[in-house]
Simulated assay, not measured.
Amino acid sequence: MTTSDTLITARGVRLRSAGAGGSAVLLLHGIGGSGASFEHQLPALAPAHRALAWDAPGYGGSTDEVPSGMAGYADRIAGILDELSVDRAHLVGVSWGGVIATRVALRHPGRVRSLVLADSTRGSGGSDEAAARMRQRAEALRTLGAVEFARRRGPNLTAPGADPATVERVVTIMSGLRETGYAAAVGSMAEIDHTAELAGIAVPTLVVVGEQDRVTGIAESEELARRIPGATLRVLGGGHAANQEHPGRFNAILTGFLASVDTGAPAGGH
């Protein structure tokens, strides 16, 4: 946490909160992360937004009352927005968090002001092989334990030659994984494939990807941007955890996009 963050709880979910005015922004971390993954985004958003970064159910400081499937995560978010008296929010999702955000936009479209899908994907349910690989991750966590699992997997989220301190931070956050939350997350990814539904997204959408993403890759982000009507694609440095590796560039792209949505002005640059 930064000194300006506060912790709040809604529907059993802990959220880091920063800023008090402007439009709400809900930050949804990746499958190996937590709300701490957005330590660089919260202070950048706070001056113009009510910024909220969740620990997903079963992660961080949230309870182990996990939802059932991707629809369950979307419904939990709608309930959190209700409890926090937020009518509509910008949803910023990294990887798995982007898949959840996509589900919210499809299932609860009236609650979403815009989508930002960072190093994300359509889900892992597009083939039996991809779904099986995803489900195997939960077994790996059970077998290895969180610390060893993070030591082996965490560095792949960053680009080759990334700042060692950033790699260490990614690994440290992943070391806090709990089996209940991770298994539910893995199951939600394995069941879902948004390919056929992306054309139905009707909110402004920004797709962001690290040019050295070794997990989901540029091609997957290009596919998201191609299939979502009017989506913009931005490529920046870094790997799968681009928001942590290059926070300055990521934050500039993010805040510029959110401002364009809130003011109705065209987004600058492509």
Rank of each mutant, 00 (worst) to 15 (best):
N251Q: 05
E211L: 08
R226D: 14
A131F: 10
L81C: 00
R50S: 08
Y182H: 07
A225C: 11
I80L: 05
A184N: 06
S17G: 12
T166W: 01
D193L: 08
T255M: 06
A44S: 11
L206A: 01
R234F: 04
G238P: 10
Q136P: 13
A219N: 13
G264R: 01
D64C: 00
A18S: 14
G125V: 06
T263M: 03
F250A: 08
L258V: 02
E222T: 08
V104Y: 02
L254Q: 03
L254R: 05
I218Y: 08
E139Q: 14
V147K: 15
M174I: 07
G69E: 01
L117R: 06
R11A: 13
A267T: 14
V116K: 02
V99H: 08
Y182A: 04
A74G: 04
A74Q: 04
S95Q: 05
G123P: 01
D128M: 12
S34K: 10
E129V: 15
A140D: 15
R226G: 14
V167C: 00
L106E: 03
V203D: 05
A196H: 10
G210N: 03
A242K: 10
G79F: 00
L81H: 02
L117S: 07
A138P: 12
A130F: 14
V208L: 09
G123V: 04
V147H: 15
R142D: 15
G32M: 10
A36T: 12
G256Y: 00
